[in-house]
Design a protein around this nucleic acid. Structure first.
Lengths: 115, 115
DNA sequence: TTTACATATCGCGATGTGACGATATGATGG
DNA sequence: CCATCATATCGTCACATCGCGATATGTAAA
């Protein structure tokens, strides 16, 4: 059996990309906001069911105060890293946390889980 | 009670620093090696009990193939981020994973834990 | 088809990181 | 004290990231 110290699951390069994406205060905060879309974005009318598709870029931009181009590229970064998934609804693109990926990442950090 | 989306424990800035430290292939691999010092560093004679104090810089350098200065500054980065702890034994400085910190970080990623 | 709006992409200057060799510090053994 | 060895710090240059405004793309509505 081939030995790897790698924690149970993922490709190290993939893991590094995910960590890079999260290693930025704004992007990390957005990911935290997406944990509770209802609570965090209650002041904006949802375009669609936030439990299903997440939150649209405009609302994330409004809440963050960053430039539109910045938010757009940040969300692209998070998506390339596999941390969020996007859905277009009308003109709005919605982003939602990929909890599977976040869990796998968390386990990769914790190291070999108890078997 | 003040509602924060922050995952149960840590200061976001601290979290970002930890993620930045891990968001590098070499540093992430070193952290993985430190999960199993015995297995990973079996080809070098331990200076001290690796379960207690971890592994010295020379051995990490030998295994990584990076320059001595690079490894030294990487270990300093990991220590500043709170991910490892250091112990001097004779002329050797040993580094050991801080599993507490790693667990807290993992939970911060996974989001609000079930209470 | 034109207009309006949401989002993406481009180009930029500023700042940070990667990784190194050279050199300094600090402990140990003669 | 002096030499040696382990580690840290410094200086450097190539390259990546930050965050922005300007502009392009794409969708929907009039």
């Amino acid at each position: 059996m081939a030995r790897t110290t790698d924690p149970a699951n993922a490709d190290p390069l993939e893991t590094v990309e995910a960590l890079k994406a999260l290693a930025n205060p704004a992007r990390l905060q957005i990911m935290n906001w997406l944990l509770d879309p209802h609570g965090e974005f209650s002041q904006w009318e949802p375009i669609a069911d936030r439990d299903e598709v997440g939150v649209c870029v405009s609302h994330i931009q409004a809440k963050s105060g960053l430039a539109q181009s910045t938010v757009s590229s940040y969300m692209a970064t998070l998506e390339r890293a596999g941390l969020v998934r996007s859905t277009r609804i009308g003109k709005w693109i919605h982003y939602k946390r990929d909890e599977d990926m976040m869990s796998r990442l968390a386990e990769a950090l914790r190291g070999t889980q108890r078997p």
